[in-house]
Each structure stands twice: as structure tokens, then as C-alpha cells.
Nucleic acid binder design. Sequence first.
DNA 1: TTTATTTCGGATAATTTTATCCTATTTATA
DNA 2: TATAAATAGGATAAAATTATCCGAAATAAA
Lengths: 144, 144
Amino acid sequence: MFSKACEYGIKASIFIAVNSREGRRVNPKEIAEEIDSPQAFTAKILQDLVRANLINSVKGAYGGFEINKNEISKIKLSQIVRAIDGDRIYNGCGLGLHTCDETHPCPVHDKFKLVRKELKDLLENTNLEQLALNIKSGASFLKI
Amino acid sequence: MFSKACEYGIKASIFIAVNSREGRRVNPKEIAEEIDSPQAFTAKILQDLVRANLINSVKGAYGGFEINKNEISKIKLSQIVRAIDGDRIYNGCGLGLHTCDETHPCPVHDKFKLVRKELKDLLENTNLEQLALNIKSGASFLKI
DNA sequence: TTTATTTCGGATAATTTTATCCTATTTATA
DNA sequence: TATAAATAGGATAAAATTATCCGAAATAAA
Ligand code: FES
Ligand code: FES
């Protein structure tokens, strides 16, 4: 469904959001521990998210990654996924035809549209604040 | 979503079904042409499907791949996907946690369940006969 | 029985994805 | 200004997926 890179990117973003809400910056080591991911690889993905302007990085001593407090609720999961996996999840054909095209549908097109609709709904209507709050309250988990 | 191998496997199965309905065996060369896939790789996937007892192979001259006429409507997409990609699509966590567990959910678990439900519906309630008929009638396509 | 045809299966190669390592650059603080 | 602490980024490496090749085994028909 999502690439490993994307899974790590989503979980890292949530962990950063949890901490940024409390004014704390975090570094790749902490992040990788909290989301159970390979540290250096995770750091690379964080770079992508910084370049996509979804998170901020601060170099040097006392630096780390953070998200602007009043941005947290504005960042949708879709933006993170798009920054890492592109939008094949939105536009790609379920059976790999060059394009998903209503007028030239693959055999599963009609039902696949429903799957994609549900996924789109998940990605478009979920923001980092909601996810951070659920982590904070212990309603959901980032690892194991 | 599905692996390339699985995409090829699904499309190949449909093409075989279309032809088996008309009493015709097909070989990897034809199949690869009709579904626009690499021939040798497709042949490997066909072997998997044979081993999973979803399609039959006949060796030697005038051989090829076929599906028992009265099996065609009984083969569900889920069986093909399971034979090639396993059942991570059914049981896997959307964010890569070790297991998808109601009592230890990842941040997207609740909404991801709906996506999976839709996908399950697609896979469980679609059989090769329906798909073959749609190809035959020109309502759907296996390539481009 | 011989031949031509076809799948089977193992070995290998290419590509993509995932992961690691090391140095350069930036920056806060002493 | 010197130092220590961080991220940035390039170069590799490892692993998984995708793809190719070739000889062996099976089989139908001549
Ligand atoms: S054409 Fe395949 S999903 Fe739309
Ligand atoms: S725990 Fe992640 S989808 Fe269920």
C-alpha cells in the first residue's frame, strides 16, 4: 500500500507533531527509536519532508525537527504521502494500466475506485493534530 | 497496492479464462502480448498459479494454460492475490506495525479498516467469469 | 520411435527499494 | 573565536523485486 519510506515518514511526522505541540524538538535518533525504524534511512526521509515544507529543521546545537504549532492541524496525511510516494495512489490503475481512465477501464476499475475513494478519504480528512492527540492519549501507537 | 507479479497474475488469469471459455489453450507468449507483460516473468507467475491449483498447464505440443470451464466462475480474485502476494493485504497494518491489532492500533487503524474492507469486498466478490465476460464484451481492457 | 513443441525449474542479471556510512555545513553556546 | 552538536547530502551497500536465459522433462503427433 504505502512504501516503507512513506510509513516511516508518516510515523515520524506524527511523533514530531506530538513533541512540537509541547515545544520540544526531536532528532533522528529519538524518532527512529520511537517509531522503530532505521535511523539513517529515516533521516533521509525527514530531509524530503523538510524540502516539501511540511516540517522544519534546525541545524546546530539544540537543533532538531519540529512543526510550527499552528501548522500541525493544517497538515493532512495526503501531503505527507504525496511528498514521499507521489500520487500514484490517487491516479494509478489498480492493475498497472498506463493510466486509470474511465473510458478505457481495467477489469477491476469500478470496484477499485471505491477502494481509492476510501483511501482518499483517509488521507484527505486526517491531519497531524488528530493523530498526535490519539498518540498522546494512548488511543493509538507508533510501534510494535 | 498489488505487486507487479500480482498485477500480471490477475491479468493473465483473466486472459486464460476468456480463452478457456472458448476451449482454447494459451501460452506465455500470447499471454504476455495480450496483457503487455514480460514473457519469462509472466511464465514464472503462471507456474505459481498452477502450483496453487488455480489454473492448469498442459505440457508438450498443443499444450498451454487453461482453466476448467466450470471452475472459471468459482475462482475469486482473492485466491489469485493470495497465491502471489500472500495475505498481507488482509492482515497487514497500514503503517507497518507487526500486526494489525484492534487492541494496539496504529494511528490510522480505524479508517484503514474501511479501506481494507472495500478491498476485501473487491477481491472476495469478483470471480474470473465476470471479469472474462467484461473483457469479451469490450467493457474493460487488459492493456494500455 | 523420432521430432517438434511446450511447460518446468534453476541460475543469473537488472532494477528499485531499503539501509548505512562518512564528511561538510550550520549554529548555539561557552 | 573555538567547540560541540546537529542537519545536509553524497557515496555505497544490502536486500527485495522484477526480469531474462537456458537446459531438462513431458507430451502430442508424425
Ligand atoms: S483503469 Fe484500472 S483502476 Fe481505473
Ligand atoms: S494496526 Fe495499523 S491498520 Fe490496524
